[in-house]
């Protein structure tokens, strides 16, 4: 009996270990950092190392210092319209950028998926290739293009579109931010779209044509609906990081480009207010996670 029992237990444990690995992973790399940030968001600033209080040294500490925690930082976020506006402005910029990305990315992905098979891998490489250069260098390159005396001005002057004393004033505006974001995130939109479009059976379009549907219409009734999983994946992959984007608006945008990433930076570095910046981060996370969860639940139901 005893021998049989051990034989039964082992595979059981093995199976559970296998199931536990992904959970352990998210616990380690998502939940633990989140809890740390959440804990800091309930603290108060102090002139100390680290610059907040209370500092929890161990589990026993947690209970004795529990009463020191406060939700004041969250209340504070509601009191100053700055945060509210920064969140809204970030969401707006992310939304506009995502729509632009979709408009720009879709034809690219479509062209790739329709290209001869022998060319497709090369085209995928071409989309990924810019990743091999530092992201910052590429954003800096846009400064060189967009600044008033930059390449764009020179090119337009050369073409006679602009007079010799006219300049393009895009740099340090929101337009430059959109250009930078669309450029930087394009592969994140194109690749999921391409994956979805490449799977699309070309005979479906033939079938549609055969049944009397002209090509432009069949794009909207067949191709686009069937690429929706790619559209959704691409939009999420772009929208979420764009909301928290910091570098691109900072480099290409003007000082009036208000985004939550910049606000968070100011809280953390200028004000050295780790608790408030943590609260900003937690709220940002909730703003992003809640709609995703709702969306996923609805997908499951559908």
């Amino acid at each position: 009996m005893a021998e049989r029992r051990t034989r039964d237990v082992k595979p059981f444990l093995g199976k559970w270990a296998l199931v536990a690995v992904p959970y352990l992973w998210s616990l380690l790399f998502f939940l633990a950092p989140f809890l740390i940030i959440f804990k800091i968001s309930l603290s108060e600033t102090a002139i100390a190392m680290p610059p907040y209080t209370p500092v929890i040294a161990g589990v026993s500490d947690l209970w004795t210092k529990l009463s020191d925690f406060t939700f004041d930082n969250y209340v504070f976020l509601t009191e100053d319209p700055l945060y509210y506006s920064a969140y809204l402005s970030s969401l707006r910029i992310a939304l506009v950028s995502t729509v632009l990305l979709l408009i720009v990315g879709y034809p690219i992905a479509y062209g790739m998926a329709r290209a001869p098979k022998s060319l497709r891998n090369a085209l995928v490489m071409a989309v990924i290739l810019p990743f091999w250069t530092s992201f910052l260098i590429r954003v800096y390159a846009w400064i060189g293009i967009l600044k008033p005396e930059g390449l764009l001005t020179i090119a337009l002057q050369g073409l006679g579109i602009l007079g010799p004393n006219e300049q393009v004033h895009i740099y340090n505006t929101e337009i430059a931010v959109f250009i930078g974001i669309v450029y930087s995130y394009l592969p994140f939109m194109v690749l999921p779209l391409y994956a979805a479009l490449e799977k699309l059976d070309a005979t479906l379009l033939e079938a549609a044509a055969d049944l009397g549907c002209p090509p432009t219409k069949s794009f909207w009734v067949i191709t686009f609906p069937l690429s929706l999983p790619g559209v959704i994946a691409g939009c999420f992959l772009c929208f979420i990081p764009i909301v928290g984007e910091f570098v691109i608006p900072d480099l290409l945008g003007g000082s009036e480009t208000l985004m939550i990433g910049k606000t968070l930076w100011a809280e953390f570095f200028n004000n050295r207010d780790w608790p408030v910046s943590s609260a900003v981060a937690v709220v940002l996370l909730i703003i992003l996670v809640v709609p995703i969860v709702i969306f996923q639940n609805q997908q499951k139901k559908a």
Binding site: A48, M49, R272
Partner: peptide, 9 residues
């Protein structure tokens, strides 16, 4: 500001 954040950490 970066320096200070680093030092305080």
């Amino acid at each position: 500001d970066i320096v200070e954040t680093k030092m305080l950490a």
